[in-house]
Amino acid sequence: MGFCMRFLEILCAIVLPPLGVFFRYGCCKLEFWLSVVLTILGYVPGIIYAIYVIVTDPERHYDDDYSAV
């Protein structure tokens, strides 16, 4: 499931860079707003930054959220 989610985030980052970063971090993080600014300044820098942020982020373990239940 992790590979599929990351693939979709990268695909969204190519189409609309802040959207891919939003799916990874949400809208209240520095990474998202930096992606918005870079996309406004130039589409290609926004794509490069968004893909970089998504690929270098360590894989999240969604199962850890339910281990306390």
Rank of each mutant, 00 (worst) to 15 (best):
C4L: 01
C4A: 00
C4Y: 04
C4M: 00
C4N: 04
C4H: 01
L8H: 04
L8M: 02
E9S: 11
L11D: 07
C12D: 09
C12K: 05
L16N: 01
L16P: 04
L16H: 00
P17A: 09
P17T: 06
P18V: 09
G20H: 01
V21W: 10
F22S: 14
F23T: 05
F23D: 02
Y25V: 06
Y25P: 04
G26E: 12
C27G: 13
C28T: 11
K29L: 07
L30N: 13
E31N: 14
E31V: 13
W33R: 14
W33L: 14
W33I: 12
L34P: 12
S35Q: 13
S35Y: 09
V36E: 15
V36Y: 15
V36R: 14
V36S: 15
V36W: 14
V37E: 10
L38S: 05
T39V: 03
T39P: 03
I40M: 11
L41K: 12
L41H: 08
G42R: 01
G42N: 02
G42K: 02
G42F: 05
Y43F: 15
Y43V: 14
Y43S: 11
Y43M: 08
V44K: 02
P45H: 11
G46R: 09
G46H: 09
I47F: 07
I47H: 01
Y49G: 12
Y49D: 13
A50V: 08
I51E: 07
Y52R: 07
Y52K: 08
V53C: 09
I54Q: 01
I54N: 07
I54A: 06
V55N: 02
T56W: 03
T56S: 09
D57T: 11
P58Y: 01
E59K: 04
E59I: 01
R60A: 00
R60I: 06
H61Q: 14
Y62N: 06
Y62P: 00
Y62K: 02
D63N: 05
D63C: 00
Y66L: 05
Y66W: 04
Y66P: 03
Y66A: 03
Y66H: 02
Y66G: 03
S67F: 03
A68T: 06
A68G: 02
A68I: 10
